[in-house]
Design a protein around this nucleic acid. Structure first.
Lengths: 218, 218
DNA sequence: GGATGATCTTGACAGTGACAAGATCGGGCG
DNA sequence: CGCCCGATCTTGTCACTGTCAAGATCATCC
């Protein structure tokens, strides 16, 4: 009668063996399938094949479970940044595009997780796992952006901060609007064959004009 | 015994008189006070001083109430756009800044409402009031952005769409991150005296470079 | 003045988070 | 080897929620 998502490992009768990870995996499946509202302590317990109170033992309460799951997401996002920066060349504009693409690609690949990661009213930001993961990902993002500008040191403080905040806002807002399907009309106005990736590249290209003097001028 | 937020108008015993508006007002108060989780059919009913099932008569279910409230928000946002465009001059860069400021100002003035407006899983986008309000606000936003570029007609389609999507994404992402307090570190790095408005202006200034040839070059 | 329909209340049911108490199991200590 | 202790999981319960059904109240129109 085990409706568990992962019935493998060592499902003894009582002690599960690795229930904590199984619960997180089940939660992620439910999240991507039904969004944040589907993330219920009891639903997660059902999906993992345990009693309704089992998750509380590992995560305390629902906020704890959601926070740990969000931490997984931030860790994964940070890893995506690192991979994108490692794969990109040394040219600033290319690095910037790679970073933006990594951000949006993560959001599109795991929309439920991405939404959860920024639903702060359901999370406990002071939880160590979440706090560490967010700061790590934020640091990776900021350094990645900072390195996409050749001569960043001579920027005025306001301009330097504006560059980071602007790019972050751009890719974050685009991800949110894309997931929410708010860009339907705009995407429909694109030339045939152009997808969101093309649009993102064009957006980043427009912003990166202030780099070495690259011009759009067709 | 009436714990209603608005005990005025004509609180007869049974028929409220304008319960629908009173419920929406109570809901907005609860929303701004406790965020989306505080928006409960029963809590709204309590705040309005009516029985727990009264809201269902006017809005059908919780999704209906949230959708109507979100519609109020979109209408207000659209009005903010119009006011900003009316108050701005004719210079493209100034109009763009005014539009962005109006967007972010609305989000900061009504953070709960703004968050609700984009929590699509709790809304019914097909509800007439919400559908009309969103399309009206979206149209106002797009035309406002389009008019911030002098020679918009000779843009390539991709660039034209990228300009609109980019600016929308920028102001939306900034609003979201600001409300979520994700920009704490960056705001702390600003020169003393600079606030989020200054940062937004700098961000928009950097983006608007591709306008008439305005340069940052200090 | 009475019927009719809109408006609001009362009551009930299933689902949820949270807590308390108990059952089960594994590992370490005698 | 036997036993105890703590971690793990279950069962039971309570308050709260959304939703529905049925009834009470009132305004309006004929």
């Amino acid at each position: 009668m085990n409706t568990a998502i992962d019935p493998g490992s060592r499902a003894s009768s009582y002690h599960h063996g690795d229930l904590r990870e199984a619960l997180l995996a089940a939660a992620e499946t439910l999240l991507e399938r039904g969004g944040v509202p589907a993330l219920t302590l009891r639903a997660v317990a059902r999906a993992a094949g345990v009693s309704h109170a089992a998750p509380a033992h590992h995560f305390g309460d629902l906020t704890g479970l959601l926070s740990e799951l969000a931490a997984v997401g931030f860790t994964r996002l940070g890893a995506g940044f690192d991979a994108a920066m490692a794969g990109a060349g040394s040219e600033p504009a290319a690095r910037l595009t790679a970073m933006g693409k990594a951000y949006v690609a993560f959001a599109r690949a795991h929309p439920g997780l991405f939404v959860l990661m920024f639903r702060s009213e359901r999370l406990d930001a002071s939880r160590p796992a979440l706090r560490d993961a967010t700061t790590a990902a934020g640091l990776a993002l900021r350094t990645a952006i900072a390195r996409t500008r050749p001569s960043a040191t001579d920027d005025a403080p306001l301009q330097a901060v504006a560059r980071i905040a602007g790019l972050w806002s751009l890719v974050h807002g685009f991800s949110v609007l894309l997931i929410d399907n708010r860009l339907g009309g705009l995407l429909g106005a694109l030339p045939p064959g152009d997808d969101p990736d093309t649009l993102l590249a064009a957006m980043l290209d427009a912003v990166s004009i202030e780099d070495g003097g690259r011009q759009v001028a067709d």
